[in-house]
Amino acid sequence: MSSNVFSPPEPGTGVLFTNTSVIDDAINLARKNSIHYLLFGLACCGIELMQTGGPRSDLDRFAAIFRASPRQADLMIVAGTLTYKMALRTKLLYDQMAEPKYVLSMGSCANCGGLFQASYSVCKGVDKIIPVDVYVPGCPPRPEALTEGLLRIQDIMMCERWGTKMRPGRKDPNAPMMISAADKAK
C-alpha cells in the first residue's frame, strides 16, 4: 500500500533524507504489523470483535492480538455503546495508554450514539471524549468491515514520520475531533 495516501511529508522532516525516508518506512512497517489492541468490547460490537479475532476472520494474521490492559495496548477498538457512566472510565483508560496510540470507533453506537440517540444515558459518540482515527460503520460491522478498519489504521501508521511523531492532518493529538457549538459554550 502506497505511503502517500495522505499528503506527502514536508521537506526536512524525514529521519535521514529530506523527502522519502526508508528508515521511517521500516519503522512503520514494524509498527503496523504488531498492533496490540485493547479489548474494549462494550456491547454487541464486542461480540463481533471477538469473532473477528476468532478462527474464521482472524485478526492474528495481521499480528494484531488483544491485550486486556491499556498499558500494553496501542489501539483502542471502542466496540459498542458508550454510556455516560462508562465515558468517564473510557477517558481514564485512554489516558492510561502510552503514545503512539490510535482509536478505532466500531459500530454506529460508538460513532454517533447509533440506535440509542434518543436515550437519556447514552453518549452520542465516543469522539466526544477521545479523538478517533477511524470510524467503522455498521450495526454491528461485519468482521470484514472491522478488518478493513484495521487496515486503514495500518495505512495511518505508514504515513507517520518518526521525526515529527505527528499524524497527518492532526494538529493537536489530544483535541476531540467533533465539538458542537453547545459543547464549546460549556
Binding site: 455516560y84 465515558a87 468517564l88 454517533c112 450514539g113 440517540q117 437519556y120 444515558s121 453518549c123 452520542k124 459518540g125 466526544k128 471524549i129 467533533m178 458542537s180 457549538a181 453547545a182 459543547d183 460549556k186
Partner: peptide, 21 residues
C-alpha cells in the same frame, strides 16, 4: 428519575454534551 413521564434530560453529564452536529 428517567422513567417518569415528566422527566426532562439535563443536557449532558459532567460536561459531555448530548447533542451532535
Amino acid at each position: 428519575y428517567p422513567l417518569r413521564k415528566d422527566y426532562q434530560e439535563a443536557g449532558g453529564y459532567h460536561g459531555i454534551g448530548n447533542t451532535r452536529p
